[in-house]
Design a protein around this nucleic acid. Structure first.
Lengths: 131, 131
DNA sequence: TAGGTACCTTACTTTTTTGTCTGTACTTGT
DNA sequence: ACAAGTACAGACAAAAAAGTAAGGTACCTA
């Protein structure tokens, strides 16, 4: 197991929380699994083509170890693995909502000049992920 | 300006939020400044001796650029700089609360074996930061 | 003149995180 | 036979974040 982790200072519980959700794609994955439950590995890959396979499984494994998602293997001929969020993961998703809300407001307040062009391009190209 | 940043994928606003608060000590700093407002540089240094001065100003500057803290310079003989949270920063602090709550519960659920000893040691040594 | 305080800045090194690429085992389609 | 699909594993490299150590200003005290 290659888990060295940044080791965040914990006071008030934020450290542990950020350790769990702090990976580059983890929040996104949690949210997507929560949406399309249960979700197969290949499905997640297709939903977020920018994530490399390595990061995808790495994050999935860590999230499983942290108890926020559940992994179920079906011993079939083309292997089949399904991911779903645990109750704990669902709570985390919920706890993340105010932060997401703040983030949205924040990017509206600031990201006009820089994000404007980039966002427009992305939106036109792929149809925007959420809002 | 050396701001390359991890570039989190944004959907639902979590990306921007984590970009703002994702640094190793940022959440802690925000919380501490919020507590002891207004707060001097040296004060923060004393409150969190583990942060190197470099990371301290680097984080403070980034947080200032992100508009969550305010920096005021008094041109005095030993220089004096005071930091305080902006309204936006206060909102972020608030939005962080549920996450912190989740983190606390999470570490209670899990961190018995490993955190137990370490926490006990720290608690005895310095009297615990929050809870 | 040396040392101390407060608030940084800069150069450099280490650690952590993320990405790229190649390979596995097995089956189905052509 | 060979490509394609599924769900990974592992070596290696690049990038980003964090840390270390030294210096710098401006003034004050001993």
């Amino acid at each position: 197991m290659e888990k060295k982790q940044r080791k965040l200072p914990d006071s008030c519980g934020l450290g542990p929380a950020l350790a769990v959700i702090g990976g580059k794609w983890k929040a996104l994955l949690l949210w997507q699994i929560h949406q399309a439950q249960p979700c197969r590995f290949g499905e997640l890959k297709r939903l977020q083509p920018e994530i490399s396979e390595k990061m995808l499984i790495q994050h999935l494994r860590e999230m499983e170890a942290d108890g926020i998602i559940h992994r179920e293997v079906f011993h079939q001929v083309p292997p089949r693995v399904e991911y779903s969020v645990t109750p704990e993961g669902a709570e985390l998703d919920l706890a993340l909502a105010p932060l997401a809300e703040w983030g949205k407001e924040h990017q509206e307040r600031t990201g006009r000049a820089k994000a404007g062009a980039a966002r427009a391009a992305r939106t036109a190209a792929e149809g925007a992920t959420l809002g």
